[in-house]
Amino acid sequence: MGKSIALFGLLIILLGLVVFQYSITSVPDLESPLTVSDARYLEADHSVLMSVSGADGNRFTVGMRGDLVEKPEEAALFYISHPEVIPYVHWPAVRSNDERRVLRLLTNWVGNHSEPVSEAVFAPESLGTLAPEVRAWLVGHQIYLALKQRN
């Protein structure tokens, strides 16, 4: 009887851990309109990232690490589903369902936002000198193009 109770308790704990892991690695459904609160380039690891907020106030941080100009197909996607709960960075596999979900989210964002400056060109080293809305559009659009190209 004691072993059965211990086994049942272990199964409950494992089920809780699986649910927790799924909740921190899933791509959230953000309500439209989506807004970008932050977009930046991190020179140390050649990453671009942006924080997207939905109308419901939920946040989602997404980015890519690697050379998005020369080799976008090799850049690795990463995201943080619930940065306010636990800052866990998830690195989904290339061409995975998670990448497709992020692509759908960015497709929704790109479809609702027009290009702020027609002559703006993605150059990671000069992102810091641009206006925040131009920087947000360039980073988001570059991530979107890289994901669209390989999915």
Score class of each variant (00 low, 15 high):
Leu49Met: 14
Leu106Ile: 02
His82Gln: 13
Ser118Glu: 14
Ile24Leu: 09
Gln149Ala: 15
Ala136Met: 06
Leu17Tyr: 09
Val134His: 09
Val85Glu: 15
Glu99Ser: 06
Ile13Asp: 12
Asn112Cys: 00
Leu34Lys: 00
Ser126Asn: 06
Ala39Glu: 08
Ile86Lys: 11
Asn112Val: 00
Ile5Leu: 13
Glu70Tyr: 06
Ser32Arg: 01
Asp56Val: 01
Leu7Thr: 01
Pro28Tyr: 07
Met1Asn: 13
His46Glu: 15
Val134Phe: 07
Leu138Asn: 01
Met1Ala: 09
Asp45Asn: 13
Lys71Thr: 12
Leu15Trp: 11
Met50Ser: 07
His46Asn: 13
Val27Tyr: 02
Val36Arg: 04
Gln149Gly: 00
Lys148Asp: 15
Arg104Tyr: 14
Ala131Gly: 02
Pro83Trp: 07
Ser32Phe: 02
Glu119Arg: 08
Gly54Phe: 10
Val69Ala: 05
Asn112Met: 13
Glu70Gly: 00
Leu106Asp: 11
Ser4Trp: 12
Val134Met: 09
His113Pro: 01
Pro28Cys: 05
Ala93Val: 02
Lys148Asn: 12
Asp45Thr: 06
Leu147Pro: 05
Val18Cys: 03
Ser4Lys: 10
Leu15Asn: 07
Leu10Phe: 13
Tyr88Leu: 12
Leu14Val: 10
Tyr88Thr: 04
Val48Asn: 05
Val52Tyr: 12
Val139Pro: 03
Ser114Met: 11
Pro28Asp: 05
Leu103Thr: 05
Thr35Cys: 02
Thr61Gln: 13
Asp67Arg: 02
Phe122Ile: 06
Ser47Met: 14
Tyr22Leu: 13
Leu105Asn: 04
Ser47Trp: 10
